[in-house]
Design a binder for these strands. Sequence first.
DNA 1: GTCTATATCTAGATAGAC
DNA 2: GTCTATCTAGATATAGAC
Lengths: 214, 214
Amino acid sequence: MARRDTRELILATSLGLFNEHGEPNVTTNLIADEADISPGNLYYHFRSKDDIVIELFKRFLARFQPLIDIAADERINAEDLWLQLHLAFEVKGEFRFLYRNLADLTARIPDLDRAMRALLERERRSIENLMTGLGKSGLLDASGVQKKLLTQNMLLALTYWIPFSDLQDPEGLEDGSAQIYGIARVLLMLTPHLREPESSQLTDIAYTYLSRVV
Amino acid sequence: MARRDTRELILATSLGLFNEHGEPNVTTNLIADEADISPGNLYYHFRSKDDIVIELFKRFLARFQPLIDIAADERINAEDLWLQLHLAFEVKGEFRFLYRNLADLTARIPDLDRAMRALLERERRSIENLMTGLGKSGLLDASGVQKKLLTQNMLLALTYWIPFSDLQDPEGLEDGSAQIYGIARVLLMLTPHLREPESSQLTDIAYTYLSRVV
DNA sequence: GTCTATATCTAGATAGAC
DNA sequence: GTCTATCTAGATATAGAC
């Protein structure tokens, strides 16, 4: 098999196994076995197991980073917000192993630690930008402290809803229903602080999508 | 040293190290070293490392279980709710290693998996009881779907705020400020759905406590 | 590029003396 | 009850043939 193909095969296999069993529970031998290659071959393509994790993280970042840069723009309507959340949860679901063992992975791999901290910070700023935009439009009614707590609550849901859901109902992530719940969850945090009619509009949109999976 | 003392010493040392470094990163040799005993002695008192984890979980449960049984009662005033949340976050902070590696610990230790699932379910019901009580008193204004999402959001924060906070600011858990934020965070989810004057009352209480740490 | 065989290392756990 | 010494298993990673 061509060099490129095997490398991609290893990555795809690793991602699947990592997501299913958790990264610490997946050995390099298992990856090789599942990919129908030898352990030695795996180490021809990757220097270490951490190297695989780092490469997967890069792929995740390439997909995810653009999504939060969009939100840094000023105005955003309800449909856009939904779509953006949808894409965000979708990508995080595809790379959910990263969030399942976040603390240990960052403790073990300094590069990942830096990158993940930076990413969380960007996400936080992205949410702040969103709220600032809503505030300027006179749509958001919340004090400074409320905004701060609200931001952290949304970030918490954006970070840990996927692992939390995985814990209780792993299948929900496969069929996409868990992602829908995640979106609705984040929107519900926001709507009580929005002025009408936007609050009701966003609530309606959330309910419409929710009705597909409930 | 008496049998009892050494056993307790091992547990206390393990808890400290687990919380600080994460359970997977703490070896039995390190525990023994830190406790100034031999590895062999450790295995005289505990059959396995998992045994230590299970015993610590039992201690956690003995502290935590009573807290959520209180909430299952009908009426609860704002001060009680605050106190209950405070105690809950305090205990979870003391045993935070359990939540940092929740998925892997439950995957590895079947007894812990069952117990943790049962605990999460009890917590969920406890929150539902709280909201049902508030609804009966005419204080809570939320639809069925909203209640469900709100419940899950609160449970998410109750489960993952501690690890999330640990990730960003480990010291906040030592001085207790992270716990205060956790409480305010959960209360803020609830207040937008409460009728006046209870909503404002609860918000004021949250702010009062928050002002101590901001 | 890929394989088989193996080195290395570390963790959990045990044996047996004291 | 506690120690020292050691076993064993399993994981990452490498060496060298093909």
